[in-house]
Amino acid sequence: MFAIEVADIKKIYDKSIVGVEKVSFNINYGEIFGFIGPNGAGKSTTIRALMGLVKVDSGLINIEGFDCFKDGDKARENVGYVPSELSFYNSMTVRKYIEFILKQKGRNFERIDELCTYFELNQNRKTGELSLGNKKKLAIVCALACSPKVLIMDEATTGLDPIIQQKFFSMLEQEKKKGTAILLSSHNLNEIQRCCDRVGIIKNGVLVAIKEIGEFKSKLLKHIVFETRSNLLAIHLDGIEDLKVDGCRYEFNFNGNMSYLINLLSSLDLVNLSITDVDLNDEFLRWY
């Protein structure tokens, strides 16, 4: 059984606005799945559907085998959630708020002190007095304090300083080792590439690609861009992908024999040349 199972979900708002359509992915226990896409692409709709806040029009959407809407209370039982928009009961202290959320989850309070210390969160402050970064920390602590089997985080690192971000990713690694399934939505592609096992790219409500992060590391894919004065009719070389030609400018990804490529390039009258590692940024931009 998958921790999270999403199959061909569709959600249309007000009979015409596409929230999501054709979104399918599964997340295993002990896996971190990155979810990327520009604003309005459908990330939050998918996440809110997982949390039972939005009902999908069709498709299957389960957490731990339970339908997220029909059996929402059972599906959410072992889920820690960090929403993108944060709002707390302002008159409550941090400690009282975490306790309230844990009571709603049916959990005890044993991890509160440990997590608040780890994320440097003052438990006695009123939630209404917190900065954006501290609000994020509070939401993260609430999500982690219930010892979840599934973590769903929408823009969890926005507003966090680099030190706390580092601590956050270390904590995610620990949770992953414990077997927690993690869905991490973010605009920060570097952090997705750093900590995720797989990544889903969503565009206009459609999940256009799911990539193993390992692919980027193992294929040693290079992004090549050059301009030449030579009259080059075509390039025939094994390992060239996604070739784009714009006048004298050539752009492609390359995972073939680098010596052959260098030989070919040295025979040309080059104006400029750039060779960089292909990363998630390039993959992401390819779709836009």
Binding site: L53, L86, F88, Q104
Partner: peptide, 14 residues
Amino acid sequence: NKQSEFLYSNSLSR
């Protein structure tokens, strides 16, 4: 106030 994101995403049913 958007507190519903937390309140309705816990283990109690609607």
